[in-house]
Structures are given as C-alpha cells and as structure tokens.
C-alpha cells in the first residue's frame, strides 16, 4: 500500500501565496494610521525643511495672532510661530516617547530574565516588588524623580518616564515566559536535548516578541502623554525647550485671551499621533493573539 493511498481521505488544502500588501490589508493592518504616523514623524524629523520661522523666536510685534497668511497656525502668547514650533516640538515629543520606551523595555526584559533565572523564592519577591512599584501612580513617581534630578532636559525626562514605566512590561514578560515554559513544544524540545540558549532562541524569543512589541508601542504612547502632561504642568521641559507639552503650557494664558488656536492645534496633532499609535498597537495585539487562537 502506498503512503498516499493511506491518507486520501484527508483533503490536502493548497493556498496560493498572495502578495505581501494584500496579506497585510487582509490581516487588518491599520494602513491609514500607519501612513499618518509615518507622515507626521517624517515631517517632524525634517522640521528644518518646512519651518517658515525660527520656532523659538518671539515675534513681539505680533503676539497672539490668530492663524493668518504669515503665521499659518497663528502665534502663541509669547509671539512664537505655532506652525514651526509644531514640527520642531513634535520631534522632541516623539524622541522622548521612543527613548523612554526603549529604556523601560530594556529594564523590563533584564529584570524579567533575572527573575526567571533566580530561585523561586527570589523570583516571587522580585515580582512582588514590581507589584509595589506599580502601586505608585506613575505620575507621582515621575514628579518625585524629576524633583530629585532637578531641572529637566530631554534625557532626564526620558530616563524618569522610562524608569517608572517598566514594571508593567516586566510582569507581562514574566507571565508569558511562565506560560511558554509549560508549553508542550518547549518540553518536547527539552526532551530532545535542547539547551537553554536553543530554547531561548527558537521558542521563547519568537513568541515573546509580539507581546513585547505591543507593550513597547503602548509605552511610547504613554510616555508621550506623560511628557506632555508634565511639561504642561510646568514640571517637565522648560518653556524654552519646545515640545508639544511645553507649547500647551502657555495655553492657560491663551485661554483668557480666547486664543483657541494655541490649544486646539497642538492638541489635535498630539491626539492624532496617539490615535495612530494606539491603532497600530491594537493591531499588533490582535494579530499575535489570532495566531494562537486560530489553532
């Protein structure tokens, strides 16, 4: 009896490989969000090319101008051109977001790995510590740390936000590793003689990556919000370092003078950016959980 005959009852399905772009669209990839995000980030990176004015120059003769031909988005209460500041400030906001997310992911992965290697008692203690750190509202922790570090700049702010946002990632990484360890394919690999590094490379990293990526993307979003909130409250970047948060911190003055543009325009950009990041993050989460559930 030939092998093929044995199994003819089970239909062999064949799917033609589609084009990459089509596959991406089918998987629900948020094309619009990604495109918008790409445009905003690109424009921010190349801010010098499209700025019409020096973003920090105060046009004292035209303080608080509503949007007009010369100042496309108007000026703020210090006479700075909002259009130019928007791109210039966006660069700093995005930079802080990415930097602090990288810092927190790094700490989280190191901490998670250490807890994994450590004996179970220390492991439990480490996770409890992460719980306790999580219990301080991050804003308070940032306030505290920033107060200690003194005057804020881009680096110190990224550091502070990164240092306060890692426990959440560490906990997720830890629980994922726990789940993977009891997976039968990991057990099978161990039976075949797979060592620590083999299992790490072949089984853990590919399965952890989407989770970590989702957390990092969401952390970028959280860091951008934290930066803008802090700078708005006057605890983050000072007024002369332009970011979306520090631009908005002048808004209270604009409020009294009915200067809606100084609040609405940076705010709309901020929200659009956050929205795009959220959509991409949600897609990441959905696409990796779908891979598990489809089975």
């Amino acid at each position: 009896m030939s092998h093929r005959e044995l199994f003819d009852a089970e239909a062999v399905s064949q799917t033609a490989p589609g084009s990459f772009a089509k596959k991406l669209a089918d998987s629900g990839f948020p094309v619009l969000s990604a495109a918008l995000l790409g445009i905003i980030v690109l424009l921010c990176m190349g801010a010098e090319l499209i700025m019409t004015k020096d973003p920090s120059y105060m046009h004292l003769e035209s303080i608080h101008q509503p949007p007009c031909r010369e100042f496309i988005f108007g000026t703020d209460s210090m006479g700075r051109d909002i259009f130019s500041a928007l791109w210039y400030g966006g660069r700093i906001s995005v930079l802080i977001g990415v930097l602090s997310a990288v810092i927190s992911a790094l700490i989280a992965v190191l901490y998670g790995a250490a807890a994994d290697v450590a004996p179970s008692g220390i492991d439990t203690a480490m996770m409890r510590l992460a719980d306790i750190l999580l219990s301080i509202p991050s804003l308070l922790a940032v306030l505290f740390l920033q107060a200690i570090l003194g005057r804020a700049d881009v680096l110190s702010l990224s550091f502070v936000i990164g240092v306060t946002s890692w426990p959440a990632i560490a906990k997720v990484v830890r629980s994922e590793v726990r789940r993977l360890q009891s997976c039968e394919y990991v057990i099978a690999s161990r039976c075949m003689g797979g060592g620590f590094f083999h299992i790490l490379k072949m089984h853990f990293l590919p399965n952890l990556l989407p989770t970590v990526m989702f957390m990092v993307v969401m952390n970028i979003r959280g860091a951008i919000v934290a930066e803008s909130t802090l700078s708005f409250l006057g605890l983050g970047l000072p007024l002369d370092v332009i970011s979306w948060g520090s631009m908005l911190s002048l808004a209270e003055k604009s409020l009294l003078a009915s200067g809606w543009w100084a609040i609405v325009i940076p705010g709309v950009f901020l929200i659009t950016l956050l929205m795009c990041i959220t959509n991409i993050g949600n897609w990441l989460r959905k696409s990796f959980s779908a891979g598990e559930n489809n089975v």
Partner: peptide, 10 residues
Amino acid sequence: DSSSSLNHSM
C-alpha cells in the same frame, strides 16, 4: 494536544 506541542511561530 498537537496544537500546543508545535511552536506556532515555526
């Protein structure tokens, strides 16, 4: 359980 004994990413 063949679904948990094969790594989905491989």
